[in-house]
Amino acid sequence: MQEILSKKDIGERIKDLRAKNGLSQSLIAEVLQLSRSNYSQIELGNQYPSFHTLHKLARYYGKTYHWLIHGIEEENEDRFGMANQLILDLENTLKQFSATVDKLAEELDLLKVKSAK
């Protein structure tokens, strides 16, 4: 028999995650690219989050879809959480590396201009 998903339970889990991290509804709505009102309706349990919203929330908080929807940690939950955190860390490192390469390219261009004079 298929389990009935409770909008209210999902909303409470999402709200608890936000509150435990000391974040505002406005900030999370911005991260999710939703209006604050729309995000508030999800937390209140008046509407289901879309797949896209669940995906972003899971990545943002390092949780799984399964936990967001059912509130039960799977046996492999820790692996998923660690993998998500590693991916986020890698993304940040790559952004920093890209910024460093861009800065280096600018400095090399300046050196070329100075040496041409």
Rank of each mutant, 00 (worst) to 15 (best):
S115T: 04
L111A: 06
S35P: 10
F80A: 12
R13Y: 06
V31M: 08
M82C: 06
K95T: 13
S50K: 15
K20S: 10
Q33M: 02
D109A: 15
L111Y: 08
I69V: 15
A58R: 06
Q33V: 05
E30N: 10
Q25E: 04
S26T: 15
I14N: 02
F51M: 08
L68G: 09
A19P: 00
L17D: 03
Q47F: 02
G22C: 12
L34A: 00
G22A: 11
H55T: 11
N21W: 03
G71F: 10
Q33K: 12
D102G: 08
A116F: 05
Y39S: 02
L108D: 02
I14V: 10
L111R: 09
I69G: 13
L68S: 12
K112A: 02
A58Y: 02
V101R: 03
Q25D: 03
N84T: 14
G71K: 13
S6C: 10
R59V: 09
D9L: 09
L108I: 09
G81S: 13
L32T: 03
G11T: 15
N84E: 14
L90Q: 08
K63E: 14
Q96T: 08
I10T: 13
S40W: 02
D9W: 02
L32A: 03
L27S: 00
K114Q: 05
L111N: 07
A29D: 08
R36L: 01
D78S: 12
K103R: 11
S37Y: 11
L34T: 00
I42P: 03
A19V: 13
S115F: 02
E106W: 07
L88T: 07
H55N: 14
V113K: 15
Q47S: 13
S35A: 07
F51P: 00
V31W: 02
G71R: 12
Q25L: 05
K20Q: 13
L104T: 15
L90T: 09
L90V: 01
L23G: 09
I72N: 12
G81N: 08
I4T: 13
E43D: 08
I28D: 01
R36H: 04
E106I: 10
T64N: 08
S26K: 15
W67S: 03
S98D: 15
L111D: 06
D9I: 01
P49N: 10
M82T: 07
Y48T: 06
K114R: 11
E30C: 01
L111W: 08
F51Y: 10
T53N: 04
M82R: 13
L108N: 07
L17N: 03
L68Q: 11
S35V: 07
N92R: 05
N92F: 03
K56P: 00
E75L: 04
G71A: 08
L94T: 10
L32G: 01
S35F: 06
E3K: 08
G11Y: 11
E107H: 04
Q85L: 12
S98K: 14
E74F: 01
Q96S: 11
H52G: 09
K117R: 03
K95A: 10
K20W: 01
S6E: 08
A19S: 07
D109Y: 07
Y65T: 07
H66S: 05
S37W: 01
R13T: 07
S26Y: 09
S6R: 06
E106T: 12
L104W: 11
L5F: 15
Q2I: 05
L86A: 14
K114D: 02
D109P: 00
K117P: 00
L54R: 01
E3W: 00
H52D: 15
R59P: 01
